[in-house]
């Protein structure tokens, strides 16, 4: 379970996306990106943390060097690559952190706590629950296809795209319909539609660690605002 609460992660999303609207001096952007990377370390994902620090460093050096590139097509390509993608880097760092550390149950628990209506929470939890089923179904469908000598190789799949689409879609969608029926009865039995408050094994709290990380973020944000003004 993540040591940082989902609330702080919401704050990170707002921060990283707000950053897109402004052009800030490179050192400040670098500091903010490293701040985003630091969350990986706080959560004990040391290797991932270094991984993202390295990428940040490559982009920082790349952007610096790209200014020295010659004025031809390749130079422009390199400049666009580093500057353009580098602009999106903070958002990607935050996204990677959040999708890597947030458990579905944490997210659902937080959304329930924020009184998000049932008609969002129920489809959302079903959605996540359904991904493994799709993967499993797909594997079995492919096996069944190969067994009957249809599209035995990946190349064959691309040679007859319409046929492939139909052969994969129809069983997949058919099964989805069946699963929906099963899942509905199962979850109704377990009281999914009960309007009362839900209990949860997972506790989501805004801790001291959250507060200190947010404070650090606010300081950087303040610095950025000061520069913009």
């Amino acid at each position: 379970m993540s040591r940082i609460s989902v609330y702080t992660k919401f704050f990170l999303i707002v921060f990283a996306n707000g950053l897109l609207f402004f052009t800030l001096p490179d050192p400040l952007v670098l500091a903010i990106t490293l701040y985003f990377c630091s969350f990986q370390f706080v959560d004990g994902r040391i290797e991932r943390g270094w991984h993202w620090v390295c990428i940040t460093a490559v982009f920082a050096v790349g952007t610096y060097l790209a200014y020295l590139t010659p004025d031809n097509l390749i130079g422009h390509y390199v400049l666009f690559f580093f500057v353009g993608l580098g602009k999106l880097l903070p958002v990607v760092v935050v996204g990677a952190y959040i999708s890597g550390t947030t458990k579905v149950s944490e997210l659902i628990c937080t959304l329930r706590r924020l009184h998000v209506p049932q008609w969002i929470v129920i489809p959302l939890s079903v959605l996540f629950r359904f991904f493994p089923t799709i993967r499993n179904d797909y594997r079995q469908i492919r096996m069944a296809m190969k067994f009957r000598g249809i599209a035995t190789t990946t190349g064959d799949m691309f040679r007859h795209p319409v046929r492939t689409m139909e052969f994969i879609y129809v069983p997949l969608l058919n099964n989805a319909t069946n699963v929906a029926t099963d899942l509905a009865s199962a979850s109704l039995t377990r009281g999914l539609t009960d309007p009362g408050p839900k209990t949860s094994l997972i506790q989501v709290r805004f801790t001291l660690l959250d507060a200190s990380m947010c404070l650090m973020g606010l300081i950087l944000m303040g610095g950025a605002l000061y520069v913009v003004m």
Partner: peptide
């Protein structure tokens, strides 16, 4: 939104998952 029953919501979740995979 209130006309949607639990089964509809589950259906929506499942088709959203499939759409997402696409």
């Amino acid at each position: 939104m209130n006309s949607l029953k639990a089964k509809d919501l589950i259906n929506i979740g499942i088709y959203s998952a499939l759409y997402f995979v696409c």
